[in-house]
Amino acid sequence: MLKLAIYGKGGIGKSTVTSNLAAAFARLGRKVIQIGCDPKADSTINLLGGDPVIPVMNFLREHDREPERIGEIAKTGFGGVLCIETGGPTPGLGCAGRGIITTFSLLADLRLFETYKPDIVLYDVLGDVVCGGFAAPIREGYASQVLIVTSGEKMALYAANNINSAVHNFEDRGYASVRGIVLNRRSVDREEEKVRAFADANNLPIVADIPRSDDIIRYEDMGKTVVEGDPELDVSKRFLALAQLLLDEENTSA
């Protein structure tokens, strides 16, 4: 089972990258779970035709009980991808990080992985590693590899550096390691050069280079990933190539 956590600055396109990667794995015949770890709970919406799944935190709030079946807090989207969202507390109250840990604990109690038996699990994590809750997806037993999404913008690279440092701080704990950088282009001047400088300085590979694409936006307006909408587009092929690269490595290491 390949478990990946996707981190990056808020608004950088983590959910777009994650859901397209999920769709790409699905198109390659793999059984995928995507878990959105963001109070906004919008990670999986483009795998679900725009019809969102109830987030786990919302379920707890509305029902005043824990879910008893995976089906109560999950929906199947494009390519059979099982979509789950942690959601978050009432805005301005509670603790979002704790919400992620609680959700993971509930999913373990519901024996999600044992019953669903996925090939791929993707964790789409809010922004930076701001507290223990947002490091939960990279704890032992969860993701073993981290992909950092960044553009060439200064603040995106700043966040990428923070994330990389945070993951390094956990080296003695058996946490995940950073697999590489996903360059999500924003039409920044000398964008590739800036991101490559960061990657080289940290000894990280750029595993995918996603061009800025109106097609992504066009299909998202239809509630789809571009990989679902048109797998023959160049941008779709970049996601499919990233998925294939990660699968090939998984097969080699296995």
């Binding site: 603790c95 704790r98 840990i101 223990g132 704990r173 058996g174 946490y175």
Partner: peptide, 16 residues
Amino acid sequence: LLAGTDFPAIAAEVES
């Protein structure tokens, strides 16, 4: 519990 302290991971550090 509320802070999400990862005791198994801390134990691994202590052991090492």
